[in-house]
């Protein structure tokens, strides 16, 4: 099975699966904290509308994990607040 990297760990994914889907399948429910309250968030709308599932992908913050299709060599990380500049 193919994998991508999440916070230094390999996460398996099926072809066509989103990063959000693969992370949930791997048992993760959250991968970012909010800027003000520091609250954990993961998937809410699941279709790219709500921007709750933000994640850092290939070094770029604020990517929607529910829209991002998983690929080999993709590197994603949890995002704290507004993310790294």
């Amino acid at each position: 099975m193919s994998t991508f990297e999440f916070d230094g760990n390999e996460v398996p994914f099926r072809e066509g699966q989103t990063v959000a889907g693969a992370l949930i399948a791997a048992g993760r429910r959250t991968w970012r904290t909010t800027p003000r309250g520091g609250r954990s968030r993961g998937v809410f709308c699941g279709i790219g509308v709500c921007f709750d599932c933000l994640i850092e992908a290939d070094g770029v913050s604020n990517q929607r994990a529910c829209l991002l299709v998983a690929t080999e060599s993709l590197v994603v990380r949890t995002q704290a607040g507004v993310g790294r500049p």
Binding site: R29, S40, R41, V43, F44, C45, G46, I47
Partner: peptide, 8 residues
């Protein structure tokens, strides 16, 4: 976390 939309 755990509350999602029905469509989601």
């Amino acid at each position: 976390p755990g509350v999602v939309t029905a469509g989601g």
